[in-house]
Design a protein around this nucleic acid. Structure first.
Lengths: 363, 363
DNA sequence: CACCCCGATGTAATCGATTACATTCACTTT
DNA sequence: AAAGTGAATGTAATCGATTACATCGGGGTG
């Protein structure tokens, strides 16, 4: 429609269109090749020419045009980040880590919120095919454009990929995640060291990979503390507040109450605490409740939540670093597991004697 | 370094490099011009040619190369979003609204977290100058690259801009914000209608534009309810949890206690409630506390917070829509003010008789 | 019938950079 | 002195699309 001769930039700027490499070359009285080399490989240009080019660039305010550069070099210096929900703090912290790292390495970040729409996934495949990005970081737990593969046509995503957070089982790409199992085990050991012998477990959704790992960690922790696993202490959940509320009710109603409750998400812990509180059970005096994630609000909850911290920023940084390695032809590690941190606040304390006794009696 | 003949895409894909418009033209036995027209202006191409092109595109999996397209058309179909803190939920909700709207209109979103670094701002100016984006949305409350203007050189940012959230006073660009004043006034009227006569105000940082508007709204609301403004009821704050805690302490210590406390951020309200609770004051039975923002956690706090909801997603949508209008040559409104919503939960209730009486006695 | 118009299509210039290849020239080597 | 070397630079092809302009042919008008 409105082609090269009429660009929005020049319409707005004071009449002078943006300087091109030609302008610089003319002003410096060298060829465009020399200008280009002065920028890319200064050591291959004589000091005098370099100086003249530098001056001309300063005078014209020249900035290389990205479209032209990437058309020629087949590199966009852009990375696509695909995530399921941009509004979720969990992801936005990771994003921040990604953005930092990419920016430092000279890459820009394009974000797409998948929003559960398969239609959008299709668009994304086209996006990558159009050469808009050099690589992608996936936070959504699965690949996309996968289906085309079977039709024998083009590969699903032929650019370098890295997955963060939720492992993608069969994908042969670098994966960055936290060590859920060790994190959960550490929390159980902490509770055991406080003196708890009956530790309840509020689970995540059945089949979820995070849930599986955290549950393993729970059992590891019990074993390490010499405690027997008791299936009655497992309460099903799904990481939501409502599940936490329900878990709290289950604890209040149930006989043979645990002295500590390990909720596998902070949000469930907060829901559980609320229910317990309205049933007259004080946390941590009457029962300890701990979470997982260390969301923003964990520190501010009442009582401040003892939880397992996920290094989200570092997760993003590690993922971005791995991708950059890939993009620059280096080798990236297959799998990076970041350590979690136990954050001790005040929602867990030693069980009271009476609690121990009653637990002992009921056992 | 590694030029046109050797592209990362083709290295990874099964040997066949990505199809170009030439490939499609050859296969469809038409010229590249016809292919281009078949895509851009189908009505200008005969039905037979159109069909052949469509078939060839399907067969080759052709997707137009973005770099080539934007080099020629001087349009990137990319929008830059600049914000102060990506990890802040407040912004990420807005981002989501922006992303949705941009995506639907065929634009991609590049995000930059300014992170308070002026150095990064300089990079951003170069970014826009390099023609990487067609326009930008600013969430950071000020322009950037501004300084260069005075040196008589190139204009600061010569691309279409829109500001969201915090108004940028002197900038002559479309601004999208919420109506802080009306929102605050509505909350005061709500409290007054519950029967409160002594309504405390916990402020934002001095000089902040949001603070100024909310304070005006507070006074409007008092006036509308026929209540006199009492400077003693104003407690300085800065939107942080600590400020809320401090405000709670001030209320506990102070004589002539208000029956309701309007905190100009939810975070402050949560801090205040915590302090009040540990001093033995129940919310809302002994004192009502309300907030502003309707952050994620407001609904889940104990008690659930009565607050002023900011339509963050809509804010993003409106901003993106305005920018798209600008980019497509339409006119965008100078200033959009979105209405807030009063969200009544349970942290505010009618004052008890004794509270009223004591207030009356002390006055 | 001559002429014009218009729709469909093709040819080739163009966008702005990168880079393979060619050229120049000073300097070393035999 | 002739030939060879290598650093510095220039020329021009190239990336892949868009689009101004040229061309062609069929149908309508005077």
């Amino acid at each position: 429609m409105d082609g090269g001769g009429r660009r929005s930039r020049s319409e707005r700027a004071a009449g002078s269109r943006a300087a091109t490499i030609q302008d610089v070359a003319r002003l410096a009285e060298v060829s465009t090749a020399t200008v280009s080399r002065a920028l890319a490989t200064p050591q291959r240009v004589s000091p005098e020419a370099r100086a003249r080019v530098a001056e001309a660039i300063a005078k014209t305010g020249y900035v290389p045009n990205t479209a032209a550069r990437s058309l020629r070099s087949q590199k966009t210096h852009m990375v696509l980040v695909v995530l399921p929900d941009l509004a979720n703090t969990f992801f936005s912290k990771i994003l921040r880590g990604i953005e930092e790292t990419l920016f430092e390495a000279g890459y820009g970040m394009i974000i797409s919120d998948l929003d559960g729409s398969p239609e959008k996934e299709a668009h994304l495949s086209a996006f990558t095919a159009a050469g808009r990005v050099d690589g992608a970081i996936l936070l959504n737990g699965h690949l996309f454009g996968q289906n085309r593969d079977e039709e024998g046509g083009s590969a699903p995503l032929s650019i370098p990929l890295v997955a963060i957070c939720e492992a993608i089982p069969d994908a042969r790409i670098p994966q960055v995640e936290i060590d859920n199992r060790v994190g959960a085990a550490g929390m159980i050991r902490h509770l055991a060291s406080l003196g708890h012998r009956r530790i309840g477990y509020v689970s995540g959704p059945r089949g979820n990979i995070l849930e599986r790992e955290r549950f393993q960690g729970y059992r590891d922790g019990l074993a390490a503390a010499g405690l027997a696993f008791d299936p009655d202490l497992v309460i099903p959940g799904d990481y939501t507040l409502e599940a936490g509320v329900a878990a709290g009710e289950a604890v209040v109603r149930g006989a043979n109450r645990p002295t500590a409750l390990f909720c596998t998400s902070d949000v469930m812990a907060i829901g559980a605490i609320r229910t317990l509180a309205s049933a007259g059970l004080r946390v941590p005096e009457d029962i300890s409740v701990v979470g997982f994630d260390d969301i923003e609000f964990a520190a501010v909850a009442e009582p401040p939540l003892t939880t397992v911290h996920q290094p989200r920023r570092e997760l993003g940084q590690a993922g971005a670093t791995a991708l950059i390695d890939l993009l620059q032809g280096r080798k990236a590690p297959d799998r990076i597991r970041l350590k979690t941190d136990l954050v001790v606040r005040s929602s867990a304390a030693a069980p009271r004697r009476t609690m121990l006794k009653s637990a002992g009696l009921n056992a």
